[in-house]
Every structure is written in C-alpha cells, then in structure tokens.
Amino acid sequence: MKENMEKITETMRISIFDVFEKMFYIFLESLDDEYQEYDVEAVISFEGAMSGEIRILFSVDMAKTMVQNMLGLGEDEIDGQDIEDCSKEAANMICGNFLGKLDSTEAFNLSIPTYILECSELPAGENVCRMDFDSDGGNVGVVIEVNG
C-alpha cells in the first residue's frame, strides 16, 4: 500500500502542475507543511480498476486567480458562479489527467464534480495522501482517498 500511495502521490503532483500551468497559467510550488486556511473545495470520485475520491481545496484568492487567468477577466468581472464552475472544471481535469497518467489502458468512470463552499472534514489513513501547494495567486491542496 505504501509503495502504491507513493506512486499515486507523485503522479498527482505531475498532474496538478500540468493542469495549473496549461489551463490557468499558474506555477505551483509544493509546501512542506499543510496549509489550513482553504475556503472552498471541489470533489470528484472515480471508479474502475481503482476507485476513490479526489478533493481539490482552494483558497478564495487562488479560485479567483484561476477564473481571471482562464477567462481573461478582471477581478470585478467574476462572480460566484464563475468560481464554482472553474473549481469543478479544475477537479475534473486534474482527476482525468491523474488517472490517465496512472494507467492509460484502463477506462475509469468519473463522477460529475461537486462544489462545497466550506471545506469539509478531510479523510485520513494509510489509503489517503495529501499535498499542499503555494503560488503568487493563492493556495491549493489535493486529498486523494483510494478505496480499492
């Protein structure tokens, strides 16, 4: 399990860098310590050769930066719907990119992402890995729970 989680963690790190650079023009840096001030989250689950759930945690600054960069809008032009939409799309892209890199031969079923205004209690255990990132635009975290 430990070896598997290390592979999952490293694959997710590559995927989240890839998505943020290509779609949001944001360059992330890994944090050694857990960031505790996230404001919103997007959750997506997947089923296939492996099943589980991925939570993407955003500081509100990061969520706004993503919308501004992706759509080329000014801060006063974006609304809550834009932030929700962009957060869910980020979760969708990160999950799909991650699973494709983990095993391109397997087909996974992805759920429709959901958006949560206040971050919920995060799972813990040996089947869970967490990463936190920083950038000029704010903070983002990812929690992956693998069920089997």
Partner: peptide
C-alpha cells in the same frame, strides 16, 4: 475531454468522433 484512456478514445472513434483533444490542452 479529461478522460483519455485508450478504451475511451477508441469508444469515441467507434461512435463517429473525428478528433480527440485531451484536457488540459
């Protein structure tokens, strides 16, 4: 789409898709 497994791509082409772009792009 984000779902870029070989099976998914083949499924899309079998159903008549003419091109495939993987997100992020």
């Amino acid at each position: 789409t984000t779902e870029s497994s070989e099976k998914r791509m083949q499924n899309a082409f079998d159903l008549g898709a003419k091109g495939f772009i993987k997100k992020p792009f």
